[in-house]
Amino acid sequence: MSFFNKVFASVGIGAAKVDTRLHDVNVRAGEDVQGIVAIKGGKTEQEIAEIYLSVMTNYVKESDDKKYTQTAVISKVKINEPFVIMPDEHKEIPFRFVLPSDTPVTYGQSKIWIHTGLEIKNAVDPTDQDAIHVHPGALQQKIFDTLGELGFQLRNAENEAASARLRRRLPFVQEFEFFPYQGPFRGKLDELDVVFTDVTDERVEMVLEIDRKARGLSGLFSEMLETDETAVRMSVTKHDLPQLTGILKQTIQRFS
């Protein structure tokens, strides 16, 4: 093995390359992500210590009246045992892992991607990034569908740094912004914000922020003082699904 090839590989010249190929870029939170990691050897043999897949997203954090974009790791999985890749060798490693139930949904400002990293001894580690489109889990989707039946339309979604009272496993929460374009809440609410604070296959915990429409002079003062908003904590389980329309309608009506 050439000494110069070793040196060049250690600084990333002529080194191994990696390419992750997903079976389907459309995935659902709580379900499997599948694909292969394709590796092409460089000009010299190299020891691949670890291949890891990280599910990533960005979120907005506010400090001193300024907004900053932070990156968060939602999950990280290792898919291999150490091995040696020979010069110009092609190798494919299949993978399958469960996308966490609390992975943000791809909508509005919320983007999700998989970062592939190879840890190579004495070398610059090659990486790859692949965007994925994350669909809501079954319970979240049912809540979205029910809000649609009540006349709400999703306007935007964004990941925001979580306050101490809302923070769970991740440093952010995803906020969904709805507006009532028809139905019983049109003219009564300016918007309805939904934040899922905890999501599993069986249960979701969420906060509804109900923004009442200003009515008259007192309503205008309330809007100026931001006292026209009410935050309501609630949980929904699979057992609630048959009555979900009534549960959500009654909850929103109580504070609108």
Results as ranks from 00 to 15, higher is better:
M56C: 05
E149V: 12
I120R: 11
G219L: 08
L170V: 07
S10W: 09
Q174Y: 04
R168G: 02
V84D: 06
K78W: 02
F95V: 03
R155S: 09
Q153D: 14
F3E: 11
M86L: 10
I13Q: 05
K111M: 12
E47L: 14
S63A: 15
V60S: 08
L53F: 03
G12L: 08
E209K: 11
P94V: 00
K238N: 10
V105W: 14
F4M: 13
K6I: 14
F179E: 08
Q250I: 04
Y181V: 06
D65A: 14
A123H: 06
F179A: 10
S101G: 00
E202Q: 11
N5K: 15
A9Y: 05
L147K: 05
H90Y: 14
T20S: 13
E177A: 10
P104I: 15
K142W: 04
V37H: 09
H90D: 15
N122S: 11
H133Q: 13
P136R: 06
I85L: 11
L99C: 07
N58S: 12
Q34Y: 04
D125Y: 05
R215L: 07
A15D: 13
G14A: 08
A214Y: 00
A72R: 08
L166C: 01
R203K: 15
S2P: 02
L53T: 04
F3S: 11
P180D: 09
I36T: 14
A38E: 15
Q129T: 13
R254N: 10
F255Y: 15
E158V: 15
L225M: 15
E175D: 07
K238P: 03
S10E: 10
R212P: 00
I210P: 03
L22W: 08
I74N: 02
V232A: 09
I51L: 14
A214F: 01
M224R: 09
V18Q: 13
T44H: 09
L189G: 01
S218V: 04
V37K: 05
S222N: 11
Q141C: 03
G41D: 02
F8L: 15
T251I: 03
L118N: 04
Q174P: 00
V105R: 06
L241E: 07
G216T: 07
D211F: 02
I112D: 03
